[in-house]
């Protein structure tokens, strides 16, 4: 280990201990103050370890990253075990096990051995010789997903979207004279509402034309395709704006933790 690495590591350890003791002392009125102090300090250490990547890749970041991978995999496994296997599978197969885990018993159904067998076959993927057997449960998963999505997407993302696009283009229409005498750019005005519906109808149509590659984008078709690009650019601009908003919120959340929960700088 290099001398500088030892100095940095020692500095971090000392800072961690100081933070732990100070935080523990500041929480003296609460239950297990030093345990709480340790947990908060450790959370802050991990936060700063991840932020350190912004300077450059380093051992602290690698430590945090690897810890996350391990703990995260175990978290999902544990939740899957208790919430699905224990609560839904065991009561269907064994009263004894259900009583052991203190979950309500149910009428037995030995059909439920089928997903267990398929699940065990899935684990065969870890074996070199029997790996091909994992394709059976995989086929079940793929077939199930295809079947469920077929109807769901067709109904909600195609049929309903198409029907929602056919909106009235003339809203509250009482003649040309009335339209021009009451013309305004008010957000809830007749013109703006009509404009919104026209943009929706034309925009969807032109957007779809842009995605249609079986015909050359020239002439009227090309013009529609061009309008489609503009609509899509506005859409991507809006998405970009919202993405910035979202990412900043996450940073605000982490910095609030550091300044409030760890350092106690704000109330």
């Amino acid at each position: 280990m290099k001398k500088t690495s030892v100095i940095i590591l020692s500095g971090v350890v000392i800072l961690f201990l100081v933070s732990w003791l100070v935080k523990g002392a500041s929480l003296s009125g609460e239950e297990n103050p030093y345990l709480q102090g340790f947990l908060t300090t450790f959370a802050a250490f991990l936060t700063l370890a991840v932020f350190s990547f912004l300077y450059r890749d380093n051992p602290f970041y690698k430590f945090a990253e690897h810890l996350f991978v391990g703990a995260s995999a175990a978290y999902w496994m544990t939740l899957g075990f208790w919430q699905t296997l224990v609560k839904k599978l065991i009561p269907k197969l064994s009263d004894g096990l259900a009583n052991f885990f203190e979950v309500p018993t149910e009428e037995h159904s030995y059909w439920y051995f089928l997903p267990v067998i398929l699940g065990l076959l899935l684990l065969m993927r870890l074996s070199k010789k029997g790996g091909w057997l994992s394709r059976w449960p995989l086929a079940f998963i793929v077939g199930y997903t295809a079947g469920i999505n077929f109807v769901g997407y067709l109904r909600s993302d195609f049929v309903k979207q198409v029907s929602s696009t056919f909106v009235p283009l003339l809203i509250d229409w009482q003649g040309v004279g009335h339209f021009f005498s009451n013309f305004s750019l008010a957000i809830d005005g007749q013109f703006v509402m009509m404009l919104a519906n026209v943009v929706i109808f034309v925009g969807v149509l032109c957007g779809l034309v842009y995605f249609f590659f079986s015909k050359e984008h020239t002439g009227l078709f090309g013009t529609a395709s061009r309008v489609g690009i503009w609509i899509l650019m506005i859409t991507f601009g809006a998405s970009f704006g919202y993405t910035v908003m979202g990412r900043i919120s996450l940073l605000v959340g982490r910095l609030t933790f550091l300044f409030k929960d760890w350092l106690g700088l704000i109330s």
């Binding site: 769901g152 997407y153 109904r155 909600s156 993302d157 309903k160 998405s239 919202y242 993405t243 979202g246």
Partner: peptide, 20 residues
């Protein structure tokens, strides 16, 4: 929720989503 509950069972669905 929209695809498999809201549209299928006609249940009102409201969403609170991340900005992205």
């Amino acid at each position: 929720w929209v695809l498999f509950v809201g549209d299928k069972a006609n249940v009102p669905v409201a969403v609170g989503v991340a900005a992205v």
